[in-house]
Amino acid sequence: MNRLSTLVKSSSSDLLVLLGVVAILSILPVALNPFLLSVATGVLIFALAAIGWNVLSGFAGQFSFGHAAFFGLGAYTVAILLTKYSVSPWLGLVVGGLVGAAFGLVVGWVSFRFGLKGAYFALATFAVAEMLRITFNNLDYLGAGIGITIPLVYGDDWVRMQFSNTREIHYWLILGLLAVAVVATIAIKRSRIGSYMFAVREDEDAAAALGINPLKTKLVAMSISGFITAVAGGYFTLFFLFIDPDVVFGAVVSVAILLRPIVGGMGTIWGPVIGAAVLSLLGELTRSLVRDPPAFLSFIEGANGLDQVLFGLILVVMIIRAPDGILGWFRRRRKQAQT
């Protein structure tokens, strides 16, 4: 109890921000039309996945280029438990998270035992995700390339987590999960294991010399990270009601997950959430610009792929101009203003 109150006191500003953000986000459905609401729900799902990535790569410094592996495992666990064994997704999400954590432990144990780090670890995680994608494409039991469609039920069904007319419920549920995940990362950041993670990120040898077990620390980070991202993947199944190997295991998913914290600010509490919000706003803006351009740009109307060109350009400029993300950029500005 004592430790809990210290935690609350020491991170009261983060918690206050969280309260404010959740309060604002929870009344958002009133203002949004159904299309934008489902866009917003997708944003929250990927923000959750990004929070998971941030624990491993932002906190513990092990850059993963294959978080689609966890995302896909969570998605498939929920889908299979629901369609083949009629297990409620409430339980399915937990099992999916545990599958993700266990997979993280196995992959982490093998790769860290063999000393993979930096670019080599990134490439290994990439290869693991690709192997899962190919394998799932070839397993008939798992729907192979056709994927799995969740059968629709009529009306609201809280056990199967399907809400026919009220998409807001999904939005609020995923918002709740996101809030829990943010609280979890705040707790990790303030805890002993969190300090171990930062120490390992900064200098593994120095951390080991101080008596920290780098392997154990990285494994803890990997399993927490796998858990959170797998839950996000499970929710992806529940919300979109259809998955196939390319949709959940594809390299695009890994990139989508890791871009968010990097744009927002890697290793920070709010980086993944800010990154998710900014990136999807940008995406929607460029898309609507191409769909319906102002008069002087009318020639770009309907040019397929132009929004992606803009997206790539923004990414390039951002990496050059604000290499430590939006939060890092603000922090630097503030420091400059002080001196």
Partner: peptide, 10 residues
């Protein structure tokens, strides 16, 4: 390393 990776990705 990861920033350079993302730059080339962009």
């Amino acid at each position: 390393v990861h920033n350079q990776l993302l730059l080339t990705l962009g």
